[in-house]
Write a protein that binds this DNA or RNA. Sequence first.
RNA 1: GCGCCAUUAGCUCAGCGGAUAGAGCGUCCGGCUACGAACCGGGAGGUCGCAGGUUCGAAUCCUGCAUGGCGCACCA
Length: 567
Amino acid sequence: MKDTLRTLVADAIAGATTAGELRLETVPEVELERPRDPSHGDWATNVALKTAKAAGSSPRAVADIIAARIAGHPDVAGVEVAGPGFINLRLSESALRRQVALVREAADDWGCVDLGHGRRVQVEFVSANPVGPLHVGHGRWAALGDSLAAILAHAGWIVEREFYVNDAGVQMDIFAKSVSARYSELCGHSATFEPEWYQGAYITEIAREIYDAEGTCWLDAAPQVREDHFREKAYAQVLAHLRQVLHGMGVDFDVWFSERTLHVVGGDGLTEVQRAIGQLSAQGYVYELDGAVWFRSTDFGDDKDRVLLKADGEYTYFAADIAYHKDKFDRGFDRVINIWGADHHGYVPRMKAAVAALGYPGQLDVVIGQLVTLLRNGEVVRMSKRTGEMVTFEELLDEVGADAARYFFLRRSTDQPLDFDIGLAKEQSSDNPVFYVQYAHARICSILRKAAGLAPDADIDAASAAARLAPAGTSLDALVDPAEFALVRKLAEFPEIVEQAADLLAPHKLPYYAEELAGAFHQFYTLCRVVTDDVALTAARIALVDATRLTLERVLALVGVSAPERM
RNA sequence: GCGCCAUUAGCUCAGCGGAUAGAGCGUCCGGCUACGAACCGGGAGGUCGCAGGUUCGAAUCCUGCAUGGCGCACCA
């Protein structure tokens, strides 16, 4: 609809230019926007303001000329020049009614836009160290990444979700030592426990699982053998647990990428890390200084150069991360999106520098999510794996439920810090906005049950019931009420919302839209009865209600929240 | 010291170059003898942190300042 109008305005300008009414060298880009004030119509354009100077005329005069050529089009009920020279367009009732049919025709594809043109994008998120439970912040990244992936898929991208498993590095060894020490204690032996080791109760739980399954047989094993065993056992348990918790909130990854594989020697005698550094080196971005090997990231806008290979012969985490990103692009992604917490934002310039040096400038986006502060009854809860004084994401999920948790996380813009008060989230669960939206969906299902003559508690296949009650081609001429058209207008916004959310990598647009849509529906519901003796009106309203149901279902799917038939 | 993010109604936040700045919560008033009141309608409530600048037009862009959060490793 927006494109139709854009063309309409552009044609009007072209026509006026040809007829000599306007003197313009080129036809400008027509920007259409939705006026804040609905009394200004459905759409407004500022082309006249933009082109008045070039046309050597006043904005209002230009606007008058363009407006005169638009008036009379069947999709346009009104066109007026307002303010300093805006052209306001009002859609005709027939154009609005047609929108209802378009929604139902599109069904699950409703709201799809084509920003991606079938290109491949990878979204990497959560990527928590596999040495303990997820904390609440991870929940935010999980909700964010999964929704962003869904949005991009709806916007024409081919999407993969990936979890980068940091299973190499010293934190794994500390993890192993921690579990091993707790194991000794379970066997009745005393064990030294260094303060920097992981002290959470979950460490003991992992040790207990090993103890229960394998007994005391590891007490006398050689230290290195024993540590290796505990590391791998504990790692496998944590990873399985991460998978399970994330799956429990509806987040499933296509790829779990192990950092270790980057350090495996290949057929050419080199690891992926070495090959990546080799490539940078061949391009002249690598040098030696003070016994270390450096990447000249300052060539790509970083503040300072960064070490790849330390003087002690170990590769830095950054070196592995470069290899990892090279691997991503080697897998053929046109674009890579990483979701990181704000505590890692200082890492962005060097990573972008590396990706640019590898030959993929501008193809990496990093979404920085501001941190989550966990509160309990107004008191800040410190979160630390080391001290173990934490509320895990799993506990939060159990307390507030996956729907509320995801919605709560997503509703705030990513660059806004989030205070998550556990007590509040639980107390408010009944007037959490997620219920307002879900309630609209449940109400629609209830209407369809009523219209289909089913009992209030009967199960219903809403889509097929609606298709039976108001088949495609049902006349919508009975729709005349302002509340009906207000709802239609809100429905029509959906593709624009998807486009914005995908373009700005801003999933929070969706919950806000969902609430507006639910609001428009609740108003309609209050003013217009759907199931009446008037057969034509009932059918038309069923069609409208069904289009609303479809749209709510789509939005909620993109948010990752269920659309219940009853609640 | 340098950098990133924020600062909008009593509270929590949308809006990010357009026309009289919005929503939810809270508060005050009102609405169920028909499809779910987990709903709807109305009122009160704001120098968009401060000061300059850019332009037809600024909460939105630029500069400086203030306040708060997060960073600034040959850690991962």
